[in-house]
Computed example of a mutant assay.
Amino acid sequence: MRHPEPDPIEAGQESVWDYPRPPRVERVVKRLTIELGGETIIDTDDVVRVLETSHPPVYYVPVADFAEGALRPGGGSSFCEFKGAARYFDVYGGDERRPRAAWAYPTPTPGFEVLADRVAVYPAPMDRCTLEGIDVQPQPGRFYGGWITPDIVGPFKGAPGSSGW
């Protein structure tokens, strides 16, 4: 299936259609926060992102930067052809629990070693996720964990009809 035409880009924006496949991982200078259950469970500027064609960036932050008890082992696992075997975490904040709402690659494949000891969080089940104080919108669909901000342009994988991209 042919991918759709990329949305127009304005100054200061990136198109997900300019991201590579296989994906690229890069360090960024941005403050990232996540709130759940009335608590800030992470507030850090130690951030890396993974960029892959048709996907909004996925942000990875150090496990050690999460609030005490915010991450607990969750059920299941998955495999990425590029990054390797993933494990899941349940995310806790206040009196709230979000099962399998975060994931990590404890032993990433070559080229993705920077992801070791880092975790990515699905923004949809969280109360609020921000980058540089800007609210994040979740990537469409239930499988992907991309973070959409006004500087990222699609269309994005995960929307209805995009499974063949």
Rank of each mutant, 00 (worst) to 15 (best):
R31P: 05
P160L: 04
G133E: 02
I41K: 02
A159Q: 15
D117H: 06
G12R: 07
Y122F: 15
Q13V: 13
V114F: 00
P106C: 07
Y60K: 05
E96Y: 05
S77E: 15
G161L: 12
I42K: 02
V28R: 10
G12E: 12
K157T: 07
G141L: 06
P8T: 08
F66T: 10
R128D: 03
I148T: 05
Q13K: 03
R31M: 09
P23Y: 01
R21L: 07
E35A: 15
D90Y: 01
Y122Q: 08
D65E: 09
P73M: 13
G146C: 10
R49M: 13
Q139C: 10
Q13W: 01
A124S: 14
A104R: 00
G69M: 10
Y92C: 14
V153A: 14
T149F: 05
P56V: 09
D45Y: 05
G141P: 08
G133Q: 02
T107N: 06
Y92A: 14
G38D: 08
F143P: 00
G111Q: 01
V63I: 14
P110C: 05
V119M: 04
S78F: 12
Y59N: 05
R72T: 13
S162R: 00
P8S: 08
Y19I: 08
R21C: 04
W165T: 15
E96L: 13
E35I: 15
D95H: 09
L51S: 04
W165R: 04
F79C: 03
A64E: 12
E113M: 03
G37M: 07
F82W: 15
I34N: 01
W147Q: 06
V25Q: 03
D45E: 15
E96I: 13
T44H: 04
D95E: 15
P160V: 12
W165H: 07
C129Y: 03
Y19K: 00
